[in-house]
Nucleic acid binder design. Structure first.
Lengths: 342, 342
DNA sequence: TTGTACGCGTTATCAA
DNA sequence: TTGATAACGCGTACAA
């Protein structure tokens, strides 16, 4: 660990000169000195001390990724392919831009914000931050923030949102189900976040357009905790006896549900049709294929990170970016129109 | 951003006293002062500046996770469920121990090591570092290192390895295949790392024990690059015409292969039996279930991180920890003994 | 019980 | 073209 100071002493130069060479501020340094310094840098394998640099510049080159509630929902954050792909996308961009990524997952927003300011994080990507928490975040953190699926409304200076056509996506999926003759359709989710409620809205609209009444009991709530999921699934499978189709709020849940259904002796789609959301690898790699609503998850992460870095560069960015969805028809929805006519 | 200095001035105290209160060195501070300081800390929302702290203490509270070659193999690191689960396990422990995780994925080991020392990382978890690179790493980085699947041999002070019974696992799987009457068995992998060669060894032993000759052409090499994988899969599917079973080096590859086989009009296991390795969510969530070799991936990450933190605490740890494997029999291997007798 | 003063490695300002 | 020197915020001997 050679320091600039040591190097300077060895070369009989000042730290300033060495520092200047390191940073290419070479206009005011003689060619000979540059040469000498560069050689020494190589020879002694100089690496800058980021802590000192950051301290001096009041920067960090760190981009924080804050995920409220996620640590509690999934003990292993990355087991959910959605999270994994999203973070993968972010990480790629962050790394290629010369920044570093630091992950904060906690249910306690205060905790997250404390660490974010402790590390002097240059910018923040927030995932799963609710409307009511947004003020608190802004108050304690003045640098650029990009929200993912934040459903920002109103003015939020220095804060942009990367969203999705959640409502339309769900609408298309459920419309497809009703077109195939389904009238008893359940909605499977785990909570009632902004994303879920947007998708529920689309679900309800599609039902309405088909002249079907939505009842509260159609909302099936999966408890994703590892020690409770099995029981929860069993309960849901039972309740699904009264339905011919389920719209699931994620592929993970769709695939998990299908496994439970199959284990309970039911066939998909012969006995019940299932439709997912995300079109992640779980959907893509299974055969028969999962009918689902496609979204570009990795791209979402990439765009979030790129947007943040653009902001960090002082350039302007749109207040909101909404990515599209597309229904991908594969093999888990059955056409039951013939049945009902019979 | 209040600093200790400012706080001290406001309270008419010295920075030392404030600092002492912050760190609970309360034996030599009057109760009244403690009270006052703590109240001020709350009120002004004091957060320490990590850069300054690290600079002063020459520490970082950062644990680096270095993955050589991974950035090039998978453009999105976390798309591979094995990586995702492993990192998830590490991250959980790291976070709960008050450390932070920083990810380095690059094909260039020098690049990785440079950043590791730049950030003054307290400890390193290395994944996919080859024998020949180990010296280089040790030379440039003197702090504790935990390797995952490193296949360390010989003396490596301050360096421990978390491994797996790869050879036995593969042996069990292939033994199972031969027991079921298979004699034309292929080996699917993407490279020839230590892990793969251990599994290949087990593969070969099992063949040998069943009196089957191993030929080089039985080694099917999958090219996992996104733009080449399709072609590679097609080629492999063709070559599999001459086999009744494949042993795949990962569940990801097994599931990917099955999808390709199904798309090519083949049935698993009726036409060809497939066996995987890892028993990750891909295997667990599919129906019919994937027969595979179970390993506790998340636990591997957890143990790696725990071991490193133990080392960081100055306690002693075993030089090597080998986790076990277990064959999980599900539904992708067919018993063809009846066929051959017929 | 509290305060002073210095060092950590780097950058930045200003003077030479 | 180069060099002194003062920050940056914190921790810690050592002094009071």
């Amino acid at each position: 660990m050679v320091t600039i100071k040591e190097l300077a002493k060895r070369l009989n130069l000042s730290t300033t000169t060495v520092s200047n060479v390191i940073h290419g501020k070479t206009k005011e340094v003689s060619a000979a000195t540059i040469e000498r310094v560069q050689k020494a840098l190589e020879e002694y394998e100089y690496v800058p001390n980021i802590n000192a640099r950051n301290l001096a510049q009041n920067k960090s080159k760190i981009i924080g990724v804050a995920m409220k509630g996620r640590a509690d929902k999934t003990p292993n954050l990355f087991k959910d392919p959605f999270i994994a792909e999203l973070i993968g996308g972010i990480e790629k961009v962050v790394r290629n831009s010369g920044y570093f990524m630091m992950l904060y997952a906690s249910d306690d927003l205060g905790e997250i914000m404390k660490e974010v300011s402790t590390w002097n994080v240059d910018g923040l990507i927030a995932f799963g931050i609710r409307e009511e928490d947004r003020e608190k975040v802004r108050e304690r953190y003045k640098k650029p923030i990009v929200c993912i699926d934040g459903y920002l409304c109103g003015e939020h200076p220095g804060m942009v949102d990367i969203g999705l056509t959640d409502e339309e996506g769900a609408y298309d999926a459920v419309k497809y189900l009703t077109n195939k003759g389904h009238r008893k359709i359940a909605f499977l989710s785990d909570s009632v976040g902004s994303v879920d409620s947007a998708r529920l809205k689309g679900f309800q609209s599609a039902l309405q357009d088909a002249g079907i009444d939505y009842r509260d009991e159609d909302f099936l709530r999966l408890n994703p905790w590892e020690d409770q999921i099995e029981e929860s699934l069993k309960d849901i499978c039972d309740r699904l006896d009264r339905y011919t189709a389920v719209f699931c709020v994620s592929d993970l849940y769709a695939v998990t549900l299908i496994a439970a259904l199959v284990d309970a002796g039911k066939r998909v789609p012969e006995d019940i049709s299932v439709i997912g959301f995300d079109d992640n690898m779980l959907a893509k790699l299974r055969r028969p294929g999962l009918t689902t609503v496609h979204q570009e998850i990795e791209k979402k992460g990439v765009i979030a990170a790129e947007t943040l870095i653009t902001m960090l560069n002082g350039e302007s960015v749109p207040e909101q970016i909404i990515l599209g969805t597309e229904l991908v028809i594969r093999d888990t929805v059955r056409d039951i129109r013939a049945d009902s006519e019979a």
